[in-house]
C-alpha cells in the first residue's frame, strides 16, 4: 500500500484527527502539569481512571462518559485531600492511585465472561477511534483551550508563585481544582490514543522538551502540542512499519526523540566548551 492509499482509509484519517485533538489537550495541560510539578498527581488521576473503566464495563455503560465522571470525582477528592494535608500529598496520591486501579481490576474480574478489550484501555488503540469519540475529544479541546486562554494570566501567576497570586486576589484554590479537572478529562480523552499506562509520557515528555526552547508559558504550551503531534505521527508510522501496537509505538518514539535531543544538546555543549 502506498502512503496515499493508507490515507484514503477511514480509520487512518480518524487516527490522524485524533492525534491532532489529543496533542492540543496534551500540550496545554501537560505544560501546566510540568510547571506546577503535578506529574505524580497526574499519574494518580490517570490510574484512578481505571476504576471508571472497570465500573463502566461491570454495569455495561458507555466507557468514555462514565470514566470522565469517575475520574473527575477522583481528581476533586485528590485535590481536596492534598489541600487539607499538603505534607501528606505523596502518600495520599499513592493510596488513591493504587485503590482506583485495584477497584477497576476487581470490577472487571467480577464482570461475567469479560476478557477482551481490557488492553485497549491500558495501551490505547488510536486506530479504532470512532466519530463519536472524535467529537467528544473536540469538545474537551474547546473547553481546555477556552479556559486556558481566558484564565491565562491567572494560570501564569498561580503556576509561578501561588502564595503571591493569592495576595493579588487570584482564586488559587479554584484554579487548582480546575487544573485537576482538566488533567482528569485530558487523561480520559487520551485513554483511546495512548492508554492509561502511557498517558503520563505524553503529558510530560513534550513539555519537558518544549521547556528547553521556550521563554513563555504560552510558547511552552504551543511547542508541547507540536512535539506531542510529532510523537503521535512518528509513532503511528513506526506502528505501521514494525507492525507493533500504536500506543507503545508512540511512547517509544517519544522517548527515543527525547533522548536523542538531550544527547545532541549535551554533545553540542561539549564541543562548544
Amino acid at each position: 500500500m502506498t502512503p496515499l492509499d493508507l490515507l484514503a482509509q477511514g480509520f487512518v484519517q480518524h487516527a490522524l484527527i485524533a492525534a491532532v485533538l489529543v496533542s492540543i489537550a496534551a500540550g496545554i495541560v501537560g505544560a501546566l502539569v510540568v510547571v506546577n510539578r503535578l506529574v505524580f498527581m497526574t499519574g494518580g488521576i490517570a490510574h484512578t481512571a481505571y476504576g471508571g473503566v472497570g465500573t463502566a464495563i461491570f454495569f455495561g455503560w458507555p466507557v468514555l462518559p462514565v470514566t470522565g465522571v469517575f475520574t473527575a470525582l477522583a481528581a476533586l477528592l485528590l485535590g481536596g485531600l492534598t489541600q487539607r494535608r499538603r505534607e501528606r500529598t505523596d502518600t495520599l496520591i499513592g493510596v488513591i492511585w493504587a485503590a482506583g486501579m485495584a477497584f477497576g481490576l476487581i470490577m472487571v474480574d467480577l464482570t461475567p465472561g469479560y476478557q477482551a478489550g481490557l488492553m485497549t484501555y491500558l495501551f490505547g488503540s488510536i486506530l479504532t477511534v470512532s466519530s463519536v469519540d472524535l467529537w467528544l475529544m473536540a469538545g474537551v479541546d474547546i473547553v481546555i483551550l477556552g479556559l486556558a486562554l481566558y484564565y491565562y494570566r491567572d494560570l501564569l501567576s498561580f503556576s509561578f508563585d501561588p502564595v503571591f497570586a493569592r495576595t493579588r486576589g487570584i482564586p488559587v484554590t479554584g484554579l487548582y481544582f480546575m487544573l485537576l479537572l482538566l488533567v482528569a478529562e485530558t487523561v480520559v480523552m487520551m485513554i483511546q490514543v495512548v492508554g492509561l499506562l502511557l498517558v503520563i509520557a505524553l503529558l510530560t515528555l513534550p513539555p519537558y522538551l518544549a521547556q528547553r526552547y521556550t521563554r513563555t508559558l504560552g510558547g511552552m504550551m504551543l511547542a508541547s502540542s507540536l512535539f506531542s503531534l510529532l510523537f503521535c505521527l512518528a509513532g503511528l508510522m513506526a506502528s505501521y512499519w514494525f507492525d507493533i501496537g500504536s500506543g507503545p509505538a508512540i511512547i517509544a518514539t517519544a522517548c527515543l526523540i527525547y533522548v536523542a535531543v538531550v544527547a545532541v544538546e549535551k554533545a553540542g555543549s561539549r564541543l562548544a566548551s
Partner: peptide
C-alpha cells in the same frame, strides 16, 4: 526554569480580575 520573561513576572503583580 519557569518559562517567563522578567517583564511577565513583573506583570504578575497586577491584581486579579
Amino acid at each position: 526554569g519557569f518559562p517567563a520573561t522578567v517583564e511577565q513576572v513583573v506583570l504578575m503583580g497586577l491584581p486579579h480580575g
